[in-house]
Design a protein around this nucleic acid. Sequence first.
DNA 1: ATGTAC
Length: 519
Amino acid sequence: MGWRFVSTRTASTPPSCSTSEPAAAFRRVEASMEPIIEVSRPSTPLLRQLGPALHELDKGFRADMRVPARIVADDELLRRMAEDRSILQLVNVTTLPGIQGFAIGMPDMHEGYGFPVGGVAGTLLPDGVISPGGIGFDINCGVRLLATGLRHLEVSGDLPALAHDLARSIPTGFGRHGRLALKPAELDHVLADGVPYVMGVLGLGTREDLAHIEAGGHLPAADAARVSTRARERGHDQLGTLGGGNHFIEIQRVEHIHDAEAAAAFGLFEGQLTVLIHTGSRGLGHQVCTDAVRKMDQALAREGIRLVDRQLACAPFSSPEGQDYYAAMCAAANFAWSNRQVLTHRVREVFGRRLGERTETWARVVYDVAHNIAKVETYGGQKLCVHRKGATRAFGPGEPELPTAYARVGQPVFIPGSMGTASFVLTGQGGSRDISFASACHGAGRQLSRAAAKRQVVGAELRKALNARGIIVECPSNAELAEEAPEAYKDVDRVVDAVETAGIARKVARLVPLAVLKG
DNA sequence: ATGTAC
């Protein structure tokens, strides 16, 4: 395997982002971004394989690295990553003040804002930085799996009606408003209290749901008062909406069980009808991120932070900007969990109406896990701010936060494939703490930009091809379909295999789509 | 991802 790492500037002179002339500094950094890797050259001792599907780029690669960069991938995925700037972005992450151990990229890694999507980094509290770009614009974008007691064959004739009803009940697409318009005081409660409020006061859900959501659907560090007026305006009527892009609701069948013990613990069986919900905090979270990036950018000089890429805007966790962002991020996360909770309620309404309110038609929450979030977690006795951007927490067995029924098998991890392809349920392995700060991948990962996908794929033809395979498509826009075409994504089987080979999480079940609802 | 370019 031949890899050559090429840095276009000398390692002894890391670029600085002089905050007195940010625009010029930004241009310099941009100019230094290509290329990081050339394929088919002699290998370098700077990149070495640490284990199965685990690689490390030595700290000596660039003088400004504080820790090494690691990547979970097989050789083919690594080669793919080298085609965009994601590895360079991961190297940039290693320069952040307070970073501990290593920055690590998941096998679905690709370019993002500042951090790569699929990047994980832990910074030491209290004074290590928190960086909004390490969480992403869609704060607490995440995935929730619902499992019914139905066999898909029992209801195959009802699927078109179910999909249609869901499409009528759930607003999808860019900027769409929902049926719930929250009064300011109600929005405050959603932001501060998350799903317990939605369940307890609005009556949408059960106590059982709460036990099967990461963090119980409520981060207590949230402070509604630190969410800007503009963010609240954008979010007040978006609870219970799906959004656009890669967000979707999919009705699926469990095609194959890989791990009988874990599947039994999660309540999954072959032929079962499941529903996968993928969405986040909509315009509210986006505005929280935008607000924080601006504020932190202005505070860099005061904090004496010099950045290699301005998109890595950050502030010490303990600083006013860091605390404001963390409290607002937690509030946006509560909003996102609440959003998935309201969507769950809509699914239950539709299923109950169409199929009758029976034990079998009840959609139980298997788990709900964030993949764009920062969490305070303890590693080696140290409290870290673990940034996961396009990365799923993957706790192994025995972690106190897990539901009791999952304590022996580990945390459910959901890996949605691209539209029309398989999704996976995995379970976190004990080794994940040391390998990846207890993190796994979050999806197949883009390999084509949205623009490139639109050029290459005709939405109407994709729709026909999906229908020909018996997949129901509820999506008003052919353009949106084209952007999310399977060709735009990496091979999800390969991505999941890399995570499993590395020892982070193991396969429990493979799910295939029956109907997809998207913006 | 996103009232898609303050």
